[in-house]
Amino acid sequence: MLKKRVIPCLDVRQGRVTKGVRFKNNIDLGDPVEMAVCYSDNGADELVFYDITASAERRPIDIGMVAAVARAIRIPFAVGGGIASLEDMERVILAGAEKISVNSLAVRNPQIIAEGAAAFGRQCVVLGMDPVKSARCPSGYEVTTRGFREFTGMDAVEWAKRAAGLGVGEIVVNSVDADGTRTGFELEITRKIADAVGVPVVASGGAGCPEHLRDAFLEGRADAAIVAGILHTGDYTIPQIKSVLDAAGIPVRLRWD
């Protein structure tokens, strides 16, 4: 049986892992490669790295870090932030990442999804989206870009469907309202998107305890869930999270040695 995935997320700024609340007030947490190895050795099913300032600073992603991570770990990882072209995507893949997460770029140029899927396979192209509650969109959620700096007017569910049609292999739904709050995932938009598309959906933003992941899988109908702050600060470990999921009857990978 396919397992539900637990995916630690490492936000990287100037070569260091940081963590903020609603994309602000970031604090330093450690070295991305060391943290990747630690999570990989302790039951992470996959990892995701975001070069969180690359997009806003309009500079390319840190390829040296991608290559160092690829050399250090033997589980899949995705990379996002600062991807501006098909060439950028190729450089990230050749450096050893499995997946590229496109967010602002895909909003500006949706065709990049189809081009990326044709060039590298759809499993390589992940749509990251940062929806925020908004009365002006039919689903109640609007897509924002550039780290919550810009509103797009696009409905989050419609954008997910369109991106799936263009060829993304997976969609990460990162709630801006929940990000860093530890109050639980935004289940409503996660479920709406999971029900609307045929590709896997990853819940992101708001994990405060293992039960929040359980809710993301059972109520949000997510295929995977991203955790950051509660792992980085040591409040919970991946085995602790997975034992709660296992007890709730959710299939998870429990052996990795």
Binding site: M1, L2, Q123, G169, V197
Partner: peptide, 15 residues
């Protein structure tokens, strides 16, 4: 096949 709740591609760890 298209099966409700089973997304395609299959992505992840399977036994």
């Amino acid at each position: 096949p298209d099966v409700p709740g089973c997304k395609v591609p299959e992505i992840g760890w399977n036994e």
